[in-house]
Design a protein around this nucleic acid. Structure first.
Length: 153
DNA sequence: GCCAACGTTGGC
DNA sequence: GCCAACGTTGGC
């Protein structure tokens, strides 16, 4: 069992959208490190912190889980898609995605500011390499953030 | 909307 | 293989 943090802009696709649809293919990731995590390391049942970026406030908004392991991102070879990459083809796909399932929504977002103030979270990837949109999370960090989210109820 | 951080591209 | 130019992310 591994733990992850995945970012999304809530005005594009937030935790409420995920709740509504139940399951969502995580297409459009165009960063090699993020791709490698999805393609190689994610397993069905892995737990995911669902992070709202470009938001007020930005922070973890709820929980999700991996419901399908890595498979080629078909938007990458679709010329109509905004995620089109001419170097990716069905024969040699360059980009991969997983499917995410909805788990729960925090009563209030655990904000980036709160996480920065929590000493125990200081070495989270989020707080040190902030631009990575798919990143691994330690179990202890995951558990603490879930507790912070629950304490708001 | 600004802009710093940082990942990617491509000329050499 | 270096590194300048460029594009994107994401907090503010």
């Amino acid at each position: 069992m591994r733990y992850w943090l995945m970012k999304s802009e809530p005005n594009v696709f937030g935790i409420n959208h995920l709740e509504k649809v139940g399951t969502e293919p995580w297409d459009g990731v165009r960063n090699y490190q993020a791709r490698n995590f999805m393609r190689d390391d994610m397993r069905v049942g892995d737990k995911v912190l669902f992070y709202h970026s470009n938001s007020k406030p930005s922070g973890v908004a709820g929980l999700a889980k991996v419901v399908r392991t890595g498979y080629p991102d078909h938007t990458s070879w679709d010329p109509e898609s905004k995620y089109h990459d001419p170097k990716s083809t069905p024969e040699t796909p360059r980009w991969f995605m997983v499917d995410l399932g909805y788990v729960s929504t925090f009563k209030q977002v655990v904000s980036l500011d709160e996480m920065r103030q929590a000493e125990d979270l200081a070495d989270m990837v989020l707080l040190n390499r902030s631009r990575l949109s798919v990143q691994p999370v330690d179990k202890a960090h995951y558990d603490l953030i879930v507790a912070m989210g629950k304490n708001k109820r």
